[in-house]
Amino acid sequence: MLLNQVPVFIFLIILSICEAKQLLDEEFGTDDVTSGLCDDFFHGTPWPLPHDSKGRGLARLCQNQIEDGKEGRIVFATMFSTTERIPVYTANTVVLHRDGKEHPRPGSKYWYRVSLALCSSDDHTFDPIESMIGHAEKHEMEQCRKFQAVTEDYTHNGLNLDRGHLSPNSINEQDLEKQLGTFTLTNAAPQFADFNREVWRVYECVAQHTILDYVPGEKVYIITGTHGVALDVNNNPWWMNGDDTDMDKNPVKIPGVYWKAFCYPGNKTHSAWGYAIVQKNENVYRKPDYNEYITLKEFNTRGIITAPFGPSCMDASFGVFSKVFENWDEYIDTKCPSYTKKKREEL
């Protein structure tokens, strides 16, 4: 009798697995299966999923560029929402050297490129693919704009919104190909200028300088993302171009928060350390405060994404990073002066 029941039992297991996969497909809009194409940019499980995934048309982009018909290397990995036209996050690995050459900031012409991969299909529920950042032909732009923002969507927006990098220009400036790769709107979202140019810029600067100060020449993992939606004065979800007054522009979601998670996995002689920071995207000036940093374990309770890194980082403390807290004001005044202070000094 028991032997006769075994096939039924196995059948029920297979059925439950199939049902679970169907639920995942419906929930996330993409299979939870990766090709390994750009898994190296993740520490731990690749492509952590946002908790608010349903209906966002998520695409997994292995960001590379096309120049003169030649495809470049993959420089980072971006999970992108094709319905909101903004990235959910960009994952990057960074190695900085104290004597490394720093390239100047590229010109704004690079913002006019698009992800050609998002121009080629109406179905983006696929495994990770090469983004192929480049220039589309004029007749292709209508198709391209269905699933991503273009630079014209940001111009004269009347809301004091910048094209806010996720993986920033500055931390990639020792690698020219990576640096150029950050100038794509699949790596940027609407970010209020006072937030972007002041407090967020300082936190990005601190990330860069603490690598140089404490782990030069070693690999760190950084994921920078967006979450939620900003609210307008009437407490309604806020989208750039959302009022349909300019039919030549497409709506682009304004994120409610920006976040950054940092992982140094350690080595035989140095312990792992990491941190996260979550900041509201609003057009106000805020003074940078080291009390805003949280451990990765605390970040994992915020309901933003599944664990961004492997256990060695998720269980780690601030480690040597906490040294920055001891002389915070002096540290940022010396290495990361505010945008307005730098402007005053230039006058």
Rank of each mutant, 00 (worst) to 15 (best):
V215P: 00
N241S: 07
L159F: 11
L231H: 13
M141R: 13
R163Y: 01
A136V: 07
R201E: 15
H165S: 09
A149N: 07
G228Q: 09
I129H: 12
K219N: 06
W238F: 15
V229E: 13
L166N: 10
C144L: 03
L185M: 04
K138M: 10
K146Y: 05
Q191C: 04
I222S: 08
L166V: 00
T182K: 01
G242P: 07
T226P: 04
N172V: 02
N187M: 03
Y203R: 06
E173R: 14
D175V: 14
L176K: 13
Q148P: 02
A189N: 02
P190F: 02
L180S: 00
S167I: 10
I133D: 13
W200S: 01
V206A: 03
V202Y: 04
E142C: 01
K219Y: 02
F195T: 04
L161I: 12
S131W: 04
K178Q: 11
Q179P: 01
N172G: 00
A149W: 01
E130D: 12
D175C: 10
D175A: 03
H209K: 12
R201D: 15
D153R: 01
V233I: 15
V220L: 07
G228S: 12
T151H: 10
F195D: 08
Q191E: 12
D244K: 14
C205L: 06
V220I: 15
E142R: 12
K138A: 14
Y154I: 06
S131D: 14
K146I: 09
W239C: 10
V215G: 05
R145N: 09
H139D: 13
I223N: 11
T155I: 13
I129Q: 14
F147K: 11
R145V: 01
G217W: 05
L159P: 03
W200A: 06
T184F: 07
H135Y: 15
L176Y: 06
Q179C: 02
K178L: 11
L185D: 02
H135T: 15
G158D: 00
E130P: 08
L212H: 06
V215H: 02
E152G: 10
T151P: 01
T186V: 14
G134I: 11
W239S: 15
I171R: 00
N234A: 15
E142P: 00
K219L: 06
E218W: 01
L180W: 05
F192D: 08
M141P: 08
C205Y: 08
S170E: 07
R145H: 13
E142V: 12
V215M: 05
G242S: 10
Y203T: 05
G158Q: 03
G225F: 05
G228W: 11
H156Y: 09
T151I: 13
P216T: 07
D194G: 00
Q143P: 00
A188V: 01
Q174S: 03
P237N: 11
S167V: 15
Q143W: 01
W200T: 06
Q174T: 02
T226Q: 10
G228E: 07
N241I: 11
I129M: 13
T184L: 09
E198V: 11
L161A: 08
L176F: 13
L185P: 00
G158M: 03
I129A: 12
D175E: 11
V150A: 10
D213V: 08
